[in-house]
């Protein structure tokens, strides 16, 4: 049951991402990506990471993509006819390169055996929090500093003269 759901969600994620990238209209592209992010969030939930799943929806779908949407709406970029959508000259090398990479990856994985691993006991949110603030305290501090820098930088770039 869960395996079937996983494969369906994986298909939705991949198709959504491909549509998002090939779509000429930025707003539609963002929406396809949000769909793909949703199914990704459910995949995270299936992989016993509910916290990451929730943050995926809150941060990615709810904040970052909304920010994209806001910029597109505010700057009026939702016109594919005057957008710089790539032609086959741009697509050909990109598809070629990705195809080679995907093919080599598939080769590497096929050469090994796909073994179903033993079910692991997942840490609870409490253990996650303990690990986050005890063992990775420095990383938390660094990231908060980086967020502060991003805040200052965004304010500096966005100020009106």
């Amino acid at each position: 049951m869960e395996q079937a759901i996983f494969y369906i969600l994986a298909a939705v994620t991949v198709i959504g991402t491909i549509l998002a990238i090939t779509e000429k209209h930025p707003v539609h592209a963002i929406l396809f990506l949000v769909t793909s992010l949703f199914s990704m969030a459910v995949i995270f939930y299936l992989l016993m990471a509910p916290l990451v799943a929730a943050f995926e929806v809150i941060l990615y779908a709810g904040a970052i993509m909304v920010l994209f949407l806001f910029v597109i709406m505010m700057l009026d970029l939702g016109h594919p006819e005057k957008g710089m959508s790539p032609g086959w000259k741009e697509w050909l090398p990109a598809v070629l390169l990705s195809g080679i990479s995907i093919g080599s990856l598939a080769l590497v994985i096929v050469s090994r055996h796909a073994v179903s691993s033993a079910p692991a006991v997942m840490p609870t949110i409490r253990e996650l929090a303990v690990s986050l603030f005890r063992e990775h305290g420095l990383a938390v501090e660094l990231i908060s500093l980086q967020l502060l820098f991003a805040l200052v930088g965004a304010l500096y770039l966005g100020r009106q003269k």
Binding site: V14, T17, A106, P119
Partner: peptide, 22 residues
Amino acid sequence: MIVPLEHILILAGLLFFIGMGG
């Protein structure tokens, strides 16, 4: 683990290279 790790890695690789191609 509901599916083998390799399948998830394939999915992640696909997404990564789709993003790269884009």
